[in-house]
Design a protein around this nucleic acid. Structure first.
Length: 597
RNA sequence: GGGGGCGUAGCUCAACUGGUUAGAGUACCGGACUGUCGAUCCGGUGGUUGCGGGUUCGAAUCCCGUCGCCCUCGCCA
């Protein structure tokens, strides 16, 4: 019966030029419209929607044709054999590419039934789709939604463009193990117990970092891989425990060589996947500049609202908070929110108010403000600031009537970061990001410090990772002044998302050993943990460097969504659970016993 | 682990300051209808207001606890 039928066309394919053809369509019932003598069925597959018509007076080998059509339900899987005919004049449906034709059914097979779905698969513009947890629980139904299918097809496009581009450029796609060795530092590992070696554990890769460096030692001078990476850390709207990177490494290159490959690749991906033109070279900001101007090492450049330094003016006020912060070596900095004076009440701004609380959550001590309204400046701290200083602040921030100036005085790092977070927060509240779909602001952030001092552990930790090469000119102060050592590292930032990061690596075993030492490892510990790498570097490691791109975040940006789960077929929820399968779940006692657990 | 938000019909939401029998749209079921297309029209089913406790004459609403989901800080070399 069914086996002698073969799909001849998909549901987005038929046109008027196909008139008269006998066709077989397969698909899901998207919707039904019935009369007592006539039933219209919209059949859906991932290509589109085609209307099939069943008429009670159709002469067919199948006697029960109309009775079956009448009893169809949404999401039934059906095969329809019939003849293509143009729709009656004026009855075309321009919403669908196939809307000028329909298939007059002469036979139908119900390939599978479906109970009433827990939510509606059909999407309507401007209407809310079902809540996320129920969609994740029935992800296979959610995956039928055209918008999700479009995103996953776009990811396919990304992968294909990447592979085509890198292949053309002479890169080899090579695989690296999933079962590897746990390395300290960095993200928490997912661990896999060894049955053969009871008590010993594999770690799933946080990234193929060390393996790709070993491939460089092995002579594969241009490597890439679209790799799954796993990190057992808490989730965010743009973070999953399991995610996909374009991992790439090159030998005999300098930083600019890597950046150029990625810039050209980026231009191609954006052009081919979403039809966007990206200009290059990309903007480059040093880490210090990004922090000073935007309060973030992943600045969103789609809007201005830059941070302005007013430290010198802090001393010219009688406001104790400002003076004490500045005299203590801190900074006074501010941003100007355009046309926001009327948007925030004094209640929002004063201690305990929404904006003030926001700054405190960012680690700041509080928020000061000036409103420019009706040609004058008002503020609760107005009386502590001489008029000419107020005017100087207004001028430096470029504030005009209607604007709101927000000030934070604190240690430099806190002042910058708090204002950086506030900048993003305000942009969302003020709608500065609305209507920006299809706009992409891409930049490199470069010149990161190699080390950050971990106050809790009281030691230097690697800012990027411990294989990142310091700048050659900084090698001399590796031990004497680690805080001033700059790394040959770079991040790719798109619309405020960190979408990639990489570095030129250390290829000299002695430098690598020194770096481990700065991080507080004894030579014995370094040998125990990374002996294989130190050995490999000894045996003729070429200079090399590379980058990894977070493809899930790329997909988010290209798809215009703020939720990473929207671009992954089977994502985990915020608590790292798979609501569909129930993973993680307990296992049989026997399995544990075999593993010696 | 901390902070914030949410939880009402299968789904999306409403229900004023605590006050009648918790409503609407949609889905679903039944009926009418020969050109619909998010069909329409008529009728109907559907509720432990997440769960447990408390305050009250009276709780979806207030309080406490708990569970779940989302955002966020910490964390993410």
């Amino acid at each position: 019966m069914q086996s002698d039928w073969r799909r001849t066309h998909h549901c987005g394919e038929l046109r008027v030029s196909d008139t008269g053809k006998t066709v077989v369509l397969n698909g899901w019932v998207n919707s039904l419209r019935g009369y007592n003598q006539q039933v219209f069925v919209d059949m859906r597959d991932r290509y589109g929607i085609t209307q099939a018509v069943f008429e009670s007076d159709t002469v067919s080998q199948q006697k029960d044709l109309f009775q079956i059509a009448e009893k169809l339900g949404r999401e039934f899987v059906i095969a329809v054999l019939g003849k293509v005919r143009p729709r009656l004049p004026g009855k075309e449906n321009l919403d669908h590419a196939t809307g000028s034709v329909e298939v007059l059914a002469s036979e139908i097979r119900v390939l599978n039934q479906c109970p009433t779905p827990p939510f509606e698969v059909t999407e309507f513009p401007g209407e809310e789709i079902a809540g996320e947890d129920i969609r994740l629980q029935y992800r296979y139904l959610d995956l039928r939604r055209p918008s999700l299918q479009k995103i996953l097809a776009m990811r396919h496009c990304m992968n294909k463009v990447i592979r085509d581009y890198l292949d053309r450029d002479g890169f080899l796609e090579l695989e690296t193990p999933l079962l590897g060795r746990s390395t300290p530092e960095g993200a928490r590992d997912y661990l896999v117990p060894s049955r053969v070696w009871p008590g010993a554990w594999f770690a799933l890769p946080q990234s193929p970092q060390i393996y790709k460096q070993l491939l460089m030692v092995g002579g594969y001078d241009k490597y890439y891989q679209i790799a799954h990476c796993l990190r057992d850390e808490d989730l965010r709207a743009d973070r999953q425990p399991e995610f996909t990177q374009l991992d790439l490494e090159m030998s005999f290159v300098k930083q600019d060589d890597v950046l150029e490959v990625i810039e050209r690749l980026t231009v191609e991906v954006f052009a081919k996947c979403v039809g966007a033109k990206i200009a290059r070279p990309f903007t480059r900001l040093t880490c210090a500049e990004a922090m000073a101007r935007f309060g973030s090492d992943k600045p969103d450049l789609r809007f201005a609202m830059e941070i302005v330094d007013l430290t010198d003016l802090g001393l010219k006020t009688e406001f104790r908070v400002f003076k004490e912060a500045v005299e203590g070596g801190g900074k006074l900095r501010g941003i100007c929110a355009k046309n926001a004076a009327g948007r925030f009440s004094n209640t929002d701004l004063k201690p305990g108010g929404k904006l003030s609380d926001f700054v405190i959550q960012c680690g700041g001590k509080g928020l000061a403000w000036l409103k420019v309204e009706n040609g004058k400046i008002t503020s609760t701290i107005e009386k502590f600031i001489p008029k000419e200083v107020q005017e100087e602040m207004r001028a430096r921030l470029g504030a005009v009537d209607g604007d709101l100036i927000l000030l934070v005085a604190d240690k430099e790092e806190i002042a910058s970061q708090a204002l950086g977070s506030l900048r993003i927060h305000l942009a969302r509240q003020l709608g500065l990001l609305d209507g920006l779909s299809g706009q992409y602001q891409i930049c490199w952030v470069v010149d990161f410090p190699s080390f950050i001092f971990d106050a809790e552990e009281k030691r230097w930790v690697a800012n990027h990772h411990p294989f990142t090469s310091p700048r050659e000119e900084d090698l001399g102060k590796l031990e004497s002044d680690p805080g001033s050592v700059m790394a040959r590292a770079y991040d790719l930032v798109i619309n405020g998302y960190e979408c990639g990061g990489g570095s030129i690596r250390i290829h000299d075993p002695e430098v690598q050993a020194r770096l481990f030492s700065v991080l507080g490892m004894t030579p014995e510990q370094a040998r125990h943990r990374f002996g294989f790498l130190l050995d490999a570097l000894k045996y003729g490691a070429p200079p090399h460097g590379g980058i990894a791109l977070g493809l899930d975040r790329w997909a988010m940006i290209l798809a215009g969504t703020a939720n990473i789960r929207d671009v992954i077929a089977f994502p985990k929820n915020q608590k790292a659970r798979d609501l569909m399968t129930g993973a993680p779940a307990s296992v049989d006692a026997r399995q544990l016993k075999e593993l010696g657990l």
